[in-house]
Design a protein around this nucleic acid. Sequence first.
DNA 1: ATCGGCTCGCGCAA
DNA 2: TGCGCGAAGCCGAT
Length: 459
Amino acid sequence: MSLTPAIDERRVRRLNQIEDQHGTVIYWMSRDQRVRHNWALLFACRKANQLGQPLEVVFTLAPGFLGAPMRHYDFMFRGLREVERDLRELGVPMTLLYGEPGETLPEYAASRNAGAVIADFSPLKLVRGWKQEVAPRLSCAFYEVDAHNIVPCWLASPKQEYAARTIRPKLNALREEFLTDFPEPELRYQPDKLPPPVEWDEVKTLLKVDRSIKAVQDLEPGEAAAELRLRDFVDGRLSRYADERNDPNSGAVSGLSPYLHFGQLSAQHAAFEAARSKASEANREAFVEELFIRRELSENYCYYNDQYDAFDGIPEWAKKTLLGHADDRRDAIYTPEQFERAQTHDPLWNAAQTQLLETGVIHGYMRMYWAKKILEWSATPAAAFDIALMLNDRYALDGRDPNGYVGVAWSIGGLHDRPWVERPIYGTIRYMNANGCKRKFDVPRYIAEMSGSSQATLF
DNA sequence: ATCGGCTCGCGCAA
DNA sequence: TGCGCGAAGCCGAT
C-alpha cells in the first residue's frame, strides 16, 4: 500500500503572530464539513498531539449567511449531525456557537484557554472578514489550512488568472505533489468528558432565513452519502463522462457539487479516486479537469477579485461590449419574479428553472444556457448578472460558492472565455441558443421530465 | 458529419 | 514585437 502522506506545510499559514499556548486545540470548522479527507482537521489533530492537548471542533453559525434559505441549512445541518457523531467516536467534542463569529469565536477560545485555533480556507469576502475580526482578538496562535483545494489557493498563483489555459500549467506542475491520498485522523489525548450533543433542531428555529424554499427530497446529505455517490459515479458513470456530460438527459455527470460545496466531500479525495479508477484516460482526465483545474480557477477568481459577485468584476473587453449593446432591443424583458417562477415564453428555459426550483440542482450545461438567456431577456447586463446570481444563490444547493459566481460571470460576463462573433445584446460574449441544445440532446424529453418532477411535488 | 471563421489578449519566443 | 491559441458555440459551406 502507498505511504500515508504527511501534511504539506505549504497548505498552512499563520493568521497572527502569536505562538502556540498551553491549552486545548480548536478546529474552527466552517467550509470543510467532514471528518475524513480534511487537511484542516488533520493539522489540528497533529497540533493537539504535539502540544499534548485534546482537540475540539467549533462550528460558528451566523444568524444569516449571504441570504441562504432553509433549504441550505437543512442540507447542512443533516451533514453536521453526522460530523458531530463521527467526531464523538474519535473523542472530539463539537460545539455550536450562535452569533457573529468575530465575537463568539474569540470569546469561546478565551473561555477554553485555547492553545491554538485552526481555521479552514474560503476565498469569500464574508468569511475573510470574520477571520480579520477574529485574528486580533485571539490570545493564542491562529492558523489557516486550505482543506478545500487540491493545490492551496495562495500557492497555485499569486494573481488573478486570465483563463483556464493560464492556470492549468501552474496547477499541473504541483499536481503530483498535492493530489495524494489522506491519512486517518488520530488523537493521543482525549478530554475528560464530552459535552451534551448539539440541539440542532432548536438552533434551526433561531435562524433569520427564508423558510419558504422547501428542502430537497431526493438528495441525501452528509459525508457517508457523498462517499456512496462518489463510488457510484467513479465505478459507473465516469466511463461515459467525456462524451455525455453535456447531455442533461444522460445522467453522466457526478451530481457531487452540493457535497463539494458544503465540504461533505473532499475534491482532492474525489479527484484521487477518479484518477486511479478503471475508466479510460479521456474520461478520468475530463473529470479531473473539472474538479481540479476549473474548480480551482474559480477559487482563484474570488480570492483575487473582490468584485467576484458583481457585474463590475468581469473583464474590461466584456464590460465594454455588453454596455455597447445595453440599449439593443430585447424580444422579451422579464422581472426577477417571472424568471423565478419559470414564467418565460421558452419551455426549455422554464424546464431548467423548474429543475433548479424543485431539486436544488441544475445540470452544468443547462446552467450556461439558463444564465445566457437571463442576459438576453433582462433590461441591462448588470441586472441580468444580479438576477442570475440571486436565483442561483437562493435555489441551488451549491449557491454562494466560487463555482456559482464564476459560472454566472462566465455565462453573462465572458470571464475566462474569449470573444466570439458580435451579435445583438451579447456583443462578443459567447452566444448559446436552443438550436445548439437540439443538436446535442433530446430537448422534448428534458422538458417533459422537468415538468413531471414539478407536478409530482404539487401533490 | 466536419470545418473554418468569428474576436481579444495573454504569455512565450525571438 | 509577433504569433499561437484558447471554459463548454454558432453558422454557413462543403
